[in-house]
């Protein structure tokens, strides 16, 4: 870990005084909240900020959990554990609560904030160890050691020849399925963007997200919707707990009898960024939710998936995960 200057920002306005190209891996200023990604990467010498701005004082104003008629509002600095354990979130937005509950460990869920969690960096081992020279995410233009390397955990959706890193999180996948928006405050004022526009693509892997310099995630809005209660997050992993997904699906269904009125499908554990499978959703509308329709939708959800050897299995596993999640959601009592 390189020596760095430490600041505390008591307000978003103070945080905004630290405008930096935050989305870039090599940003010289980094915001610190729970620290569960940032500090690791600093110790590993992957991130070398010259200044760390601690935004935990913002918790006082931005860690609320509100469930209202228009939807759910979550403070950007709320602890993952607080949201996972919230009775109304569990009841009305089960996919959100489950995604958080299945993430990490109790210790990490207590420390980590929602805003930091959605921006969690990839677990690509070639990214996380600077002794590997080739990593376009760390060093633009240096290549990708994972392509042709050991890539069992890597993404099959949204990848490019520049980067096949997998987005590791769970919560953002549930947000993607449920049409969530991200609330931002920065030097230019407040704005909202779709969760699907927060993370940027694999064509420029050294850019992580679309936040403007000095912007802080202060909250998330999940609209109320008839499918939110019949939602679930299914996480497939190599061990039962404390492990990243090798495939996951956040699904939500609005059913009329057995027939699908609306469907929402988010995919994790297999994509470069939180993924939304809109073609699969559309294919389900107006049809009964059966093994066959779920299978057809799953095929669409994984269309365009590209394996790189060790991770080829994720295409089939991803389909099966979607089918299992859809059938589970349709069988849920609401």
């Amino acid at each position: 870990m390189r020596p760095f200057a430490y600041d505390r920002a008591e307000t978003t306005a103070l945080a905004a005084r630290h405008p930096t190209a935050q989305g870039q891996t090599d940003a010289k200023v980094q915001f610190l909240a729970g620290g569960t990604t940032l500090l690791d990467l600093m110790k590993l010498d992957v991130l070398r900020p010259e200044r760390v701005v601690d935004i935990t004082p913002l918790k006082a104003r931005h860690s609320g959990i509100e469930v209202g008629p228009d939807g759910l509002r979550l403070g950007g600095l709320a602890a993952m554990a607080a949201v996972a354990d919230h009775p109304a979130v569990k009841r009305d937005y089960p996919a959100i609560a489950e995604a958080l509950q299945l993430a990490a460990s109790p210790q990490l869920r207590n420390m980590a904030t929602l805003g930091g969690n959605v921006l969690q960096r990839t677990r690509c081992p070639y990214y996380r160890d600077p002794s590997w020279a080739a990593c376009n995410k760390r060093t633009p233009g240096s290549g990708c050691a994972a392509i042709g390397g050991f890539n069992r955990q890597h993404a099959v959706l949204g990848v490019s020849e520049r980067c096949i890193a997998q987005y590791p999180g769970d919560f953002a996948v549930a947000l993607a399925a449920l049409d969530a928006e991200v609330e931002l405050v920065g030097p230019g004022g407040a704005r909202r963007i779709s969760i699907l526009d927060l993370h940027t693509g694999s064509d420029r892997p050294h850019i992580e997200h679309s936040l403007r310099p000095g912007e802080v995630i202060v909250g998330f809005r999940v609209p109320a919707a008839p499918w939110a209660r019949r939602s679930t997050y299914l996480k497939i992993r190599d061990r039962q707990s404390y492990e990243f997904a090798i495939a996951s699906a956040a699904v939500a269904l609005d059913l009329d009898g057995g027939v699908v009125r609306h469907a929402r499908i988010g995919l994790g554990g297999m994509a470069y960024k939180p993924w939304r499978a809109k073609a699969a959703e559309a294919a389900l509308v107006g049809k009964p939710l059966t093994e066959d329709t779920a299978t057809a939708a799953a095929r669409l959800a994984l269309e365009g998936a590209v394996g790189h050897g060790h991770n080829d299995y994720k295409v089939e596993l991803g389909r099966r995960t979607v089918v299992r999640a859809l059938l589970a959601a349709s069988a849920t009592e609401v």
Binding site: P125, Y126, W132, G149, F150
Partner: peptide
């Protein structure tokens, strides 16, 4: 322990 076949380096260390 996974080994990068070209580099002969441990990956998941």
């Amino acid at each position: 322990t996974e080994i990068d076949a070209d580099a002969a380096r441990y990956v998941n260390d």
